[in-house]
Design a protein around this nucleic acid. Sequence first.
DNA 1: TGACTTGTCCAAAGCGCTTTGGGGAGGCGG
DNA 2: CCGCCTCCCCAAAGCGCTTTGGACAAGTCA
Lengths: 343, 343
Amino acid sequence: MNLKTLAQELGLSPTTVSRALNGYPEVSEATRQRVLSAAAAANYQPNTQAKRLATGRAMAIGHIIPISDRHEIVNPVFADFIAGAGEIYANAGYDMVITIVPDNLEARAYGELSSKGNVDGVLVHAPRLNDHRIALLDDLSLPYVMHGRVNGTRKPYSWVDVNNTRAFERATNFLLDLGHRRIALINGISDMDFARRRKLGYERALSARGITPDPALLTEGEMTEAQGHDSARSMLALPDPPTAFLTASLLSAMGVRRGIEENGLTMGRDVSIVTHDDELGYLRNGTAQEPIFTATRSSVREAGRRCAQMLISHIERGDTQPRSDLMEAVLVLGQSTGPAPKR
Amino acid sequence: MNLKTLAQELGLSPTTVSRALNGYPEVSEATRQRVLSAAAAANYQPNTQAKRLATGRAMAIGHIIPISDRHEIVNPVFADFIAGAGEIYANAGYDMVITIVPDNLEARAYGELSSKGNVDGVLVHAPRLNDHRIALLDDLSLPYVMHGRVNGTRKPYSWVDVNNTRAFERATNFLLDLGHRRIALINGISDMDFARRRKLGYERALSARGITPDPALLTEGEMTEAQGHDSARSMLALPDPPTAFLTASLLSAMGVRRGIEENGLTMGRDVSIVTHDDELGYLRNGTAQEPIFTATRSSVREAGRRCAQMLISHIERGDTQPRSDLMEAVLVLGQSTGPAPKR
DNA sequence: TGACTTGTCCAAAGCGCTTTGGGGAGGCGG
DNA sequence: CCGCCTCCCCAAAGCGCTTTGGACAAGTCA
């Protein structure tokens, strides 16, 4: 069933039917109703490709996911972010197209997406230090929004991010207030902008109390359970072990907890943990009312929604004015923290 | 830059240029080279929408992800599956379009995807008991492949699945051979086909040794760390507690381990665990050489690749003959299992 | 009453590609 | 020398929609 035959059946021109369906005023209310009910009866849906070609709008938004042997971008956070963004897309009538690409071909993938015209804009994930994608996208003049910020760029751009520095500064202060002085940071990959900011917040809080960050209490890497476990194990074996851990993900925190318990210590009494919690659907920090870990909490799904919203409004308004949205993390109290043990 | 202007610059007709670019024989090798290099120089990429309209092929494959308040489909497995499938799509020139939809609108979403013609086929996730989607898709005559099987359907359909029954039967037998008699199963949601099959394998192995499955040793639900932990805690408090756990996911296994250790017991000595391991990028079971948990291992990313491959060949061959691919899980030995403790 | 809006509708020209149905030039055999 | 075949190439007709530029009738106003 297509526009033409639908029009014929109604004894109308395709023009009129198209206008009736798309809500243009140049058609009487009577015929509009007639068209709408006929379309519904025939289960007519305008062909997407034709519509796209005619309007010049792809009605789709791209996400490019680089894959490498070195590290995994397809992480648990990704799935939740996608879910949030996808909700918004669906409501706004956009398709979400995801491209998986070897990371050495990432730049090319953006170029092709743009020149082949199959998306109206892109959402950019996991910005790194001096991210080259920002220049690339400005070049292509393809609308985009970044999930996270880029350090070392002069040009303005649109982004949605959590206030990572502040969150980790607060978390560190919270531990300092409890009397902890040896605080370890189990961080993400140092190249990642968010990891850099978290470290900054941590260091800032320490320095403010006259404590120099100890490199022996810092791990940077993939945020897995194993990372947390291995870090905790080796750090707890130090002559002057940490009494508290700050971790960048729930998975790492779980690993740290295991490391603590393996040493016959009790989390929350002997050793404290504060973690960042992205509120992933499948990796919950206890319940909303009763968290297990004390955590800086910020929903990545909500971040997905906001990114999507922002990008769509850029696209639809043709609005090139960069916008930004800084989300504040909430510090929630769990059972994983307590006063620093006396020596 | 479009075909027409490229043709003009070359002093050729659009027909010839199109043919040269698409490898048709009706063009001399000399002009083909001339066209190709001009296209490369101009960075020409044919407009996707126009191509799609002209050929009638969307060059895209859909994944519909239902979202509900009740349970989370956006699980860690999903991300890895997507990554595997996406690899294949990218190489074959297909876009991956993901639709997030409230689960009560799922059927409608398939209908729209089909009638609007924005995909050439769909990949269907997480089949449940008597899944209605199979009838729906046959109705729409939209090519599809299921990741998993559907119980209670007479009609043949294409699928890729792990031999869950056999995997869990083997795992159970392995524990039985170690002398365990009280074996708990921490399973997925009972409605899910894969969970049903796993339970079947477990029960079959027990029955073969004359053991009746004890309902008190069965949990069915979302496969989270909390599920594993809570189940282990309550089961270990039973008058006749299990000496071994079979879990459906690594996350559950981690929860069970925590429950075991909380009770002052040691995993692998006092209580054994065998888990299923989907080889998720972000949730590894130790290393490939040294697994932590004894596990039935099968890569969900590989399953994604195979599904994608199968679907594409269906689409391209116009081949309606259903195919199937049953992957066998490997049983790998970790440190989480040992002989049943003496009473 | 005639000029001018206003309200409804339509024909036709795109959007950028593919593909059908030739057409002309050159080579070959008879 | 003529007819035929092969090799290259092209014009034009779609694909299914939107949108421009009217057309026609009815209503409005002086």
